[in-house]
Design a protein around this nucleic acid. Structure first.
Length: 729
DNA sequence: GCGAGTTATGTTTTT
DNA sequence: CATAACTCGC
């Protein structure tokens, strides 16, 4: 079979497949694992594989591909469709697939199909309630930490009942009580949290052989991208789905695992061959994305991770571009430095859409934004969920949630007096009290307000008017979301109250208009649009989904959101101790290694030029603090420390006017090639900084040789030979 | 019941 | 520092 070369697609997709890629693409039945470094075409292999399966006669609806983000799913869908009639193939994230399964087989999961999906703030309200219900206070049991603990349990598929059985100490027993209560609250509200989606789907599949077999036959081929970041629940779901046929194909890179904190279990990919006997393993080691100098620093950095199988990144692109480390005085200087570099790139003819800025924490975007506004550089902040977190948007969505799922008390409490309609705390308390005594939902209690003795007639009338309004919305639901949002906006009085607010309200109203437009797009693109489906879809939106590659703007995003993307020019800012690696991972080697992988992911997004920046001082929580350059900078094998020292001595002036001199000093950190000597195990060596040590290992890679030395100080370091300044004793 | 003003509190990454 | 939560006077 041949893929059309005449197609009008981007080069990456029309260029030839390598022998290894072909092996993966045309593999027919049975388990397949594609272990591949960054820029090696993993996602491309999955996309082509979908096309190849269809070409060989597999009906599209028998294919299920799982991606990491909705955005990635959209792209894969489009590309697969360009090469084959793939319409009907299921391509989505794990979470979306679970929503689909839970909606279809809801009765097996103990919920109704109109369930609400709760985000952190909704979850937080429920867990606070659970803590209070257990006669505990939220100072002893912090809601955030409790939720974290519950989330970890759910990701391991330990439900409240199972945890109760294994809880043996005081803390676990208390946590177990909160966990049970929390689940009961969610059940009463017909709501699930993100982790429930996975846990409930996993249990549903495992406990119902009929459902499992039905879905196994529906999805005869299962393909999973970014497998290194799957958690235990996702692993069990995959296992259950593929158990009927073993046609599971996973692609991933252990070096790019960056979601351990969210329950991702790297063992899933490491143990794939054990879990799936006879698995065919294909390794893709060639990198088609980045210039050799970028791969060199990436390779050297990741070599510092101890718990890692060595993997090569073989450059295929011709030498080009550069890697630069730039020291700055503070975050403002850093931001203007980035802006200056961008201006220079633009002068050279670079398109703004080929430039991205990555940072560790979202708060770092502010300084960059301010500099870009002042420098008139168009940018987009890739933060998809932010829009949906705006007060006015959450208000509208709460109305929609109540319309779809009246049991959703969190949403109901949000809108019952928004905009204000004279239903205050005392009234709500009375109705809630009645509801809990009768064991009915708050919504039902409002319906029965005339029965509640201590609610005055005038207040009861207000409640009834509110109820009638919501009922009116429910009766007039055509399924078209835009229509409903518009009706809710006007009829609820939200529009009126926003207009009354003045300028701020005007902005808010404009946001609602934007929501209406987005909903109209959904209505248009969806075969059978429905409010339930819309709400469940937008609940699963991620930051990365907001990235728009087609606009002429510089992209600003976190390192986590950068996963799966690539840009000609990449800036990584704030590479300092405490930020990258983040302080929260300081005393834990595993977490430090994950931070290193995160940096690795960022670096390997760059195709041509990579700019790494750090600041000497940084404002953190209002205080200006002296920083220390990240340990990772030393591991890149660039002679940046020299320029940093010079920086320390005040050699580099920190005003924008002097940026020219700053840049020329950076020349010293641009990689240049020279021959390096060879070392052997046992050689005694001297290092300028670490002193005397013994060579433990020598990876002979010519120019890129890496030598591992156990220094007498007790630390063992892997050093890039050509920069390490090692001398044999 | 409402909203302005004050006080506490919490700070990573995200499906 | 920034926002959420809370208090208190109207």
């Amino acid at each position: 079979m041949m893929f059309p070369s005449t197609a009008k697609h981007d080069d990456a997709f029309t260029s030839r497949l390598t022998a290894s890629q072909q092996k993966a693409v045309f593999h027919r039945d049975g388990p397949l694992l594609v272990i591949a470094g960054p820029g090696s075409g993993k996602t491309r292999v999955i996309t082509f594989r979908i096309a190849a399966l269809i070409d060989s006669g597999v009906p599209p609806q028998n294919i299920c591909a799982i991606t990491f983000t909705n955005k990635a799913a959209d792209e894969m869908r489009q590309r697969a469709f360009a090469f084959s009639a793939s319409a009907g193939a299921h391509i989505s994230t794990f979470h979306s697939l679970c929503v689909r399964i839970l909606r279809r087989y809801s009765e097996f999961a103990g919920i109704t199909p109109n369930f609400s999906i709760y985000d952190d703030s909704d979850q937080s309200k429920c867990v606070k309630q659970a803590i209070t219900d257990c006669n505990l206070n939220t100072t002893d049991f912090s809601p955030a930490r409790t939720l974290d603990a519950i989330s970890t349990l759910k990701n391991k598929l330990i439900d409240a009942g199972a945890f109760e059985n294994q809880a043996d100490d005081f803390f676990s027993k208390t946590l177990s009580k909160i966990y049970s209560r929390y689940q009961q609250i969610l059940k009463d509200l017909n709501a699930v949290d993100f982790d429930d989606l996975l846990m409930k789907a996993a249990f549903l599949l495992e406990n119902n052989p009929d459902v499992r077999s039905e879905l196994g036959h529906r999805y005869k081929y299962l393909l999973i991208d970014e497998y290194q970041d799957t958690n235990h629940a996702q692993y069990r779901i995959a296992k259950a789905l593929a158990s009927a046929h073993n046609n599971i194909c996973a692609t991933g890179d252990p070096d790019q695992s960056i979601y351990r904190w969210r329950g991702a279990d790297i063992r899933n990919i490491l143990d794939f061959e054990r879990d799936w006997p006879n698995a065919v393993v294909v390794r893709l080691e060639e990198n088609f994305r980045s210039a050799p100098c970028i791969l060199e620093v990436a390779d050297r950095l990741i070599a510092n991770n101890q718990s890692r199988k060595e993997k090569r990144l073989i450059a295929t692109r011709p030498p080009a571009g550069k890697v630069v480390i730039e020291p700055y005085e503070d975050e403002v200087e850093e931001a203007f430095g980035v802006a200056d570099n961008i201006r220079r790139l633009v002068d050279e003819g670079t398109s703004l859409s080929n430039i991205a800025i990555f940072y560790r924490v979202n708060a770092q975007s502010r300084a960059i934004e301010e500099a870009f506004i002042r420098s008139k550089i168009p940018y987009q902040i890739v933060r998809g969920v932010e829009f949906y977190n705006r007060k006015e948007i959450r208000d509208i969505l709460a109305y929609l949630k109540v319309i779809v799922n009246p049991a959703d008390k969190v949403a109901l409490l949000r809108i019952i007096n928004t905009p204000t309609r004279g239903i205050g705390k005392t009234t709500i308390d009375k109705v809630q009290d009645y509801a809990s005594r009768r064991n009915i939902s708050l919504y039902e209690a409002i319906r029965a307000v005339s029965q509640i003795s201590n609610v005055p007639q005038s207040t009861a009338a207000k409640l009834t008017a509110f109820l009638n309004m919501v009922e009116g919305f429910r009766k007039n639901d055509s399924g078209l979301v835009a229509e409903m949002v518009e009706r809710v906006f006007t009829d609820s009085g939200l529009e009126k109250s926003l207009i009354a607010e003045g300028a701020d309200g005007k902005d808010a109203a404009a946001n609602v208009e934007e929501l209406i437009s987005a909903a109209a797009v959904y209505d248009k693109q969806t075969e059978t649009p429905a409010l339930v489906d819309y709400l469940q879809q937008i609940a699963l939106f991620s930051d990365a989904d907001a990235y728009n590659a087609s606009v002429e703007r510089v992209a600003l995003m976190t390192l986590h959101s950068a996963k799966g993307l690539e840009f000609d020019n990449v800036f990584i800012v704030g590479v300092e101790e405490g930020l990258l690696p983040h302080e929260r991972s300081a005393d834990n080697d595993d977490e430090t290694e994950e931070e290193r992988r995160l940096f690795f992911v960022g670096i390997t997004r760059a195709k041509v030029n990579l700019f790494i920046a750090f600041a000497k001082y940084r404002q953190i929580r209002g205080q200006t603090l002296r920083t220390i350059p990240s340990q990772f900078l030393f591991e890149l094998g660039l002679s940046f420390s020299e320029s940093a020292e010079r920086n320390d001595n005040g050699y580099l002036k920190s005003t924008i006017d002097n940026r020219q001199s700053t840049i020329s000093n950076h020349q010293s950190s641009i990689i240049n090639h020279k021959l390096s000597p060879r070392f052997h195990r046992g050689d005694i060596v001297v290092h300028k900084k670490f002193g005397i040590g013994t060579v433990k290992d020598f990876a002979d890679m010519g120019d890129n040789s890496v030598v591992t030395v156990a220094f007498n100080t007790g630390q063992t370091k892997s050093l890039a030979l050509k920069y390490a300044k090692l001398t044999k004793l």
